[in-house]
């Protein structure tokens, strides 16, 4: 399923630079400036984490950073709202299992 729109009767999409990133270790491509969630969705990935208690699959719901459904581990940091975080070259994005662990800095 190619889910990127190439033609639209009203809109033209200006996409940024093509960049590589990693989803659970697998190399994927997306465009700089779009959100991580958008890039994953375009690559056919809809499941972003599993819920804390029942381990149920979760994806995004609101896409504007308000509902906490799309938390993932990004470059080692848990609970990142991927629907509002812009994609950058080389990002390491991981499915978040449960609550995610806080990495303590000192």
């Amino acid at each position: 399923m190619s889910s990127r729109l190439e033609h639209h009767p009203i809109l033209t999409f200006q996409r940024g630079r093509k960049v590589k990133f990693y989803f659970d270790g697998k190399e994927l491509e997306g465009y700089e400036g779009e959100t991580i969630a958008a890039a994953l969705h375009a690559a056919g990935v809809k499941k972003y984490r599993t819920s804390a208690e029942l381990g149920r699959p979760r994806g995004f719901f609101c896409a504007i950073g308000k509902c906490s459904s799309c938390f993932m581990v990004v470059d080692g940091k848990p609970n990142v709202r991927v629907c509002v975080t812009p994609l950058r070259e080389g990002m390491r994005v991981q499915t978040q299992i449960g609550k995610g662990d806080l990495i303590e800095k000192n």
């Binding site: 399923m1 889910s3 990127r4 729109l5 639209h8 809109l11 999409f13 996409r15 779009e34 959100t35 969630a37 958008a38 969705h41 375009a42 809809k46 499941k47 972003y48 819920s51 149920r56 699959p57 979760r58 994806g59 995004f60 719901f61 609101c62 896409a63 504007i64 459904s69 629907c83």
Partner: peptide, 25 residues
């Protein structure tokens, strides 16, 4: 209702009209 693929209408619009990615078939 928590399965991926159940989306808010606004979310679908954002994905489709801002990023040019369709939500499904």
């Amino acid at each position: 209702n928590d399965l991926p693929g159940v989306y808010g209408a606004g979310a679908v619009q954002t994905l489709m009209n801002v990023y040019g990615i369709v939500p499904g078939d």
